[in-house]
Computed example of a mutant assay.
Amino acid sequence: MEILAYGVQADERPLLEGAFTGRHALRCLDVTLNRDTAPLAAGYPAVSSSVNAVLDAETIAVLAAGGTKLIAQRSTGFNNIDLDTAAALGLTVARVSSYSPYSVAEHAWALAMAVNRHIVRAARRSRDFDFRLDGLLGRDVHGMTVGVIGTGKIGAAFTRIAHGFGTTLLGWDLVPDPACLDLGMTYTDLPELLGRADLVSLHVPLLPATHHLIDAAALDRMKDDAILVNSSRGGLVDSAALVETLRAGRLSGVGLDVYEEETDVFFTDRSLQGITDDVLARLVTFPQVLVTSHQAYFTRTAVAQIIDATARNIDDFAAGHTNENTLVPARTT
């Protein structure tokens, strides 16, 4: 089967090509799949999309018109895919239902530690041979109260690391995780968690019910010197409200690996032309904010698992099978 893979990163490409050698013919593109790039897939029965693909009704219609029968997304989240349109047009959709939760949990902690200990500022100073400690005062994580919003696989991995630091654990989720309870986590409602936590980390999926879960009211409940980390989905945080919170001098640190309008910005080089998103441009100017480009998943272990699952999804589709990763099965009539 011929496959066109969109949004392939330079470090990802040799792993992807190696996994498909001898199985399927693969062509890799570094551009994101959207309505403008979808015509490139004409004649390809399968496309593989990255997490930042925009698979709305128009994009899917273009793919279907070009003969595409399978969308194999290389990510867990699928809020970017119009599943109803895919089903109506007869396209099968598959995702990667799970991969190393440690990749994201560890990156979330890297963000938290970096903003708490002002690592980026210190590194920039040392390059200029400025070794002063002014403005670099951090806090012990040991003894902090850590609020984990969402205690699925990634949230639970984040919790285990937090327990190792010696923190008080608060959790918010529909169903408490027994392993987190065994670590001493107390589940509570969201307002109490936000009001008590010194560090808040987000690990819930983006759904209509969680869109802007951290809005102006939620930010108002947080401690003035709290740290906020989001390594899940950008839409969980009202970015404009976050800017206003920071302008008011609140929050001692913010670590963001995702942003609600990251499509067509993240995974690209905008160093020459800049960006037109005023909110993102403002966010990165705050000294206590650290933004990374949706890279929390980007470890050798996690990427290898994502690619293996994607290859299996395509193998199963070619054989007429579904598996646990299938979101929209092939039309049977």
Rank of each mutant, 00 (worst) to 15 (best):
D84Q: 15
T92E: 13
M113Y: 01
V104K: 02
D84P: 03
G90S: 06
S97M: 11
S100H: 00
G90K: 06
A112M: 12
A110Q: 10
P101T: 07
H118N: 15
H118Y: 11
V115Q: 10
S100L: 05
H118C: 13
A88K: 15
M113F: 10
S100M: 04
D84L: 09
A110L: 11
R117M: 08
A110R: 12
S97A: 15
I119S: 11
T92A: 15
P101H: 10
L91R: 06
V115Y: 09
Y99I: 03
T85I: 03
S103V: 08
H118A: 09
I119H: 14
H107F: 07
E106T: 07
A108G: 15
R117G: 08
A110F: 07
M113D: 01
R117T: 10
S103P: 08
S97W: 02
Y102L: 14
A86M: 03
T92D: 07
H118V: 03
Y99Q: 03
L91W: 13
I119F: 14
L89F: 10
S103A: 15
W109Y: 11
A114I: 03
D82C: 12
H118D: 11
L83F: 14
M113V: 13
H107M: 11
A87E: 14
V115K: 11
D84I: 08
V93E: 07
H107P: 03
I119W: 13
R95G: 00
A114E: 08
D84K: 15
L111R: 09
A94R: 01
D82M: 11
A88L: 08
V93F: 09
Y102N: 15
E106L: 02
N116E: 05
L83S: 12
A110M: 13
A112F: 02
A94H: 00
A108T: 06
A110K: 06
A87R: 14
L111E: 08
A110G: 15
S98F: 03
S100C: 14
A105L: 04
L91M: 13
Y99W: 05
S100K: 00
Y99P: 00
R95V: 05
P101L: 07
V96S: 02
W109N: 03
Y99T: 02
V93T: 03
D84W: 04
E106V: 01
A86T: 02
V96E: 02
Y99S: 06
H118I: 04
A110P: 01
D84M: 12
L83W: 10
Y99L: 07
A86L: 05
V104P: 00
A94G: 04
A86N: 04
D82W: 10
L91C: 09
D84E: 15
T92C: 15
Y102Q: 15
V93W: 09
A108E: 02
P101I: 04
A114K: 12
S98P: 00
W109K: 06
